[in-house]
Design a protein around this nucleic acid. Structure first.
Lengths: 151, 151
DNA sequence: ATTATATCGTTCGTTTCCGAACAATTTATT
DNA sequence: AATAAATTGTTCGGAAACGAACGATATAAT
């Protein structure tokens, strides 16, 4: 029985998350949180980061982002501040605690990526990313269209 | 900012699941359930299927499989029967309802895979799978070893 | 035979994810 | 100016995933 592409991707994704969770357990944050906090740390230097940025960058749904950030606020690694210029928005701000984790988080993410791509040439990796990008495009196109006939 | 491999994979995985969920909504089953029921339908012809088979094939944890199958039993697409020869095991049996869905499920899974791989040559796809396999091996190796230094 | 070990499934609490329905606010239309 | 439409975030219920701790059973070791 041939395993389809989706199954491959799902399985791989689980394993990656599992590894990330284990890696960051000592730091008191989860794998997904590590990615989000890293993004916030990097981009809040350049300008304000809002919830909807997390949505678009990570491809999470609105409600997912809400829950995720609530958890992170509870853990004390971010704050969510109201914005005067637009009352709908909330600015995501990293706390002291998050800034302290910065170097460690970055190192862990790099290390995990190194492990993941062990034994894979940069050329192969490049093609892998290209294929992944194409797949993403395919799914997004369908998502936009939405009107395609169900099978 | 370079997006790391894990992020790519996670994002892609979500989108695939989303698409599968939407596709199977009309049939009253979820995306993951569709994969599992397909596996069961195919393999229960050859011999009994137990929960642990689902574990190994899909890479899910024990508790995940329990919950998944409980949901499927509640939906009436499978039964879980005790086995006389070994009281620990439970045989997973597809119901009438599941058998009726067989062709549709198979078609939907194929269709989703077709959409996913649109615009990707079979050579590229082959390499994609090889890279994914290597990544899986890398993660499994670490999982076995476990003793590697945390970053 | 008894004890130890391994296997299989359940339960519990938690995180991660979604869609749908909602409220509040901003922007566009007219 | 008033109404319509779009954007942002929340809440709710549920599915999908995990680890840890547990009980029951089967197999191995002594």
């Amino acid at each position: 029985m041939e395993k389809d592409c989706g199954a491959w991707i799902n399985l791989l994704s689980h394993k990656v998350r599992k590894r990330l969770d284990a890696t960051f357990q000592d730091l008191g944050i989860t794998g997904v949180q590590s990615r989000v906090i890293y993004y916030i740390l990097v981009h809040s230097k350049e300008g304000p980061v809002f919830q909807r940025d997390i949505e678009t960058v990570f491809g999470f749904s609105r409600s997912t982002v809400t829950g995720l950030l609530q958890g992170m606020e509870r853990s004390g690694i971010i704050l969510r501040e109201s914005v005067e210029s637009d009352a709908r928005l909330k600015r995501i701000v990293p706390t002291e605690k998050a800034v302290c984790l910065d170097a460690q988080v970055a190192a862990c993410l790099r290390e995990t990526d190194r492990l993941l791509t062990r034994g894979i040439s940069s050329g192969q990796l490049q093609l892998f990313k290209e294929v992944a990008a194409q797949m993403m495009k395919n799914l997004d196109q369908w998502d936009q269209g939405e009107a395609e006939p169900h099978c």
